[in-house]
Structure formats: C-alpha cells, structure tokens
Design a binder for these strands. Structure first.
Length: 291
DNA sequence: CACCATGTTCCTTG
DNA sequence: CCAAGGAACATGGT
C-alpha cells in the first residue's frame, strides 16, 4: 500500500480527522516500531499532546503536535514500511492482530497496524534530511532531476528508488513511470538524453497524480465493517474491503503483469530483477540495451 | 516445501 | 569513491 500516492491519500484523510484531537493514552504494542527511541520516552512525550496538523514528505507522515502543558510544538515522524496502515476505529472495537501502536483519542482510537512491522514512529526527524525533491512540488525541476541522474551508471529504475534523487517513488510506480515515459528500466541513468529526462519527469508526476486521484475515489472503511455503514461517520480505512474486487491492481499498466499483454501494443510484459527487486516493463514499448 | 512481497538500513565484496 | 549483492527486520499469500 504505501508509496507516495497512498501516503498522500491517507494524510488527506487523517489531517482533518486528527487535527485538534488530544491523545489521552498511547499503547506501544510493538516496541521496535518506535525507532529510533524508546516506547517509554515516546509515551511520555506524546500523551496529552494535541494534533495540530498532518503532512506528508516523500513516503513519511509528519504529525505535528503541541505538548499539553508547555504548548511546545513537536513532530512525530511515521513510516508505513511495506504493510503499515493507519486508521481510526471506535475506541471499544477490537484491535487488529498486528497492531503496532494505538493511541486513545476521546471517542476514537488511532491505530497503526503493521503486519510485517517494518514501519516506524519516531520523535526523531533526521530521516527527512537526505530526501530529494517532492516530485509534485516546484523543486522537482528538469534541472534538479538531471542533476540527480547524471554521473551515475546505475540503471534508471534503481536510481528512481533512491529517495535522494526524488522522494516518494517506490517499486510499483518506478516501473509504471518508466513504461509511461517509454524508457528501458536498465538504461544507465547518465545516458538518458535531456529529452528522456523531461519525459520521465512528466511521467512520474502524471503517474503519481493519477494514483492519488484513483485513491481519492476509493471508498473508505475500517476492518470488520461493511461499507457505507451508518455509524462509519468520522472513521476511515484506506484499502480494500474484504471480498471486494482488487480494482487497485487493474489500473496498473505493467507492475505485477508479467506474461500479460501490454495494454499499448499487446507484447507480453516482461519481469526482471534489479538490485534484488522485480522490475516490469514492455520490451517493445521500452526498447533498450539487452541485459 | 519454495518463492514472492508496496521499504529501509547495514554490511561485505569487488 | 562507486556499484552490486546479500541479509536483516517479520509475516502472509500463492
């Protein structure tokens, strides 16, 4: 679930739902999720604080809080890892099996569920420092992108996963953007022509924006409830309702479609490994050096 | 049983 | 210095 578009959609729902609410209690169910830092220090800092805003930077969630007594502003950084989810549920509802952290608000509970526990929460924000430009922001210029790609023989697909080049692109949207730009994933990044860089920049922005638009149309719900329930007011859950069709995968052009026909030319989509991660591409629409 | 999985970080080898 | 590869984290799906 979590690359930039999924985090963006989540933040858009969380911001109005959390802003102004006070954290009454914090339960850290998985100590390692608070990293770096300790669960005790995290609880001490956060309990009693009030949310003032929620933002996104790359794939990180930036929770802005104000301490109850000192009124000092503070920041909690969140990352969903591979399987993290965040949602609100009624405070008396059962916690999910793989709950990492739960925060009691007044009537609601804010839940960080994370099956594989790769996600994290921290009072430490230095992880934001090395991040490259926001792909949808004004800093992501052709010049900045060009600077991030030159003088590297790394395959362009691998470069796109480097959060210092551009922040928020992950394994799914790297393949999708390269298909959209018709650029071979294995092309060394320094060999991209200026024209290709311009096209790839536009493709990244278009791909991410389409995904955000798509995500915004997905009905929200929370585990264990049917959709559209009358008491779902103020609650949300970004993801697939149990048993619902996986519309999420159907909109992807190449990711996880190995062997299936390219939607543009009919050629079978190919899969290869780059740095141990799957890359999907159309050998006809994205011609390039054979590796 | 085998292999794969939306992410990041650390370590080793060349 | 760079690049590549592997492992670790931990659990589930096919």
């Amino acid at each position: 679930m979590p690359e930039l578009p999924e985090v963006e959609v989540l933040v858009r729902h969380l911001a109005p739902a959390l802003t102004g609410r006070r954290i009454r209690a914090v339960e850290v169910h998985r100590a390692k999720t608070v990293r770096p830092g300790s669960p005790a220090a995290f609880r001490r800092a956060v309990e009693g604080a009030r949310f003032t805003d929620v933002e996104r930077r790359g794939k990180y969630l930036v929770f802005r809080l104000r301490a109850s007594r000192s009124r000092a502003p503070m920041v909690v950084l969140g990352h969903l890892g591979m399987t993290g989810r965040m949602y609100l549920q009624p405070r008396r509802a059962a916690l999910p099996r793989h709950v990492a952290v739960a925060m009691d608000l007044d009537r609601l509970r804010f839940v960080f569920e994370d099956t594989r526990y790769f996600g994290r929460l921290s009072l430490e924000t230095s992880a934001l420092e090395p991040l490259g430009p926001e792909p949808l922001g004004p800093e992501f210029t052709v010049g900045a992108f060009l600077a991030g790609l030159r003088r590297s023989r790394q395959a362009i697909k691998v470069r796109l996963l480097d959060q210092r080049v551009v922040a928020g692109v992950g394994n799914i949207y790297a393949s999708e953007a390269l298909f959209r730009a018709r650029i071979a994933p294995q092309l060394p990044s320094e060999q991209l022509t200026r024209e290709q860089v311009v096209r790839l920049r536009a493709a990244i922005r278009g791909t991410l924006q389409d995904a955000i638009r798509f995500g915004s149309t997905v009905p929200l719900d929370w585990p264990g409830r049917g959709e559209g329930g009358s008491d779902s007011r103020g609650l949300f859950y970004y993801g697939r309702a149990p048993g619902a069709p996986d519309v999420y995968a159907e909109r992807l052009a190449v990711y996880d479609r190995a062997g299936q026909p390219c939607r543009r030319c009919g050629t079978r989509i190919a899969r290869m490994l780059q740095m141990g991660r799957s890359t999907y591409y159309c050998p006809h629409c994205q011609p390039g050096p054979t590796v």
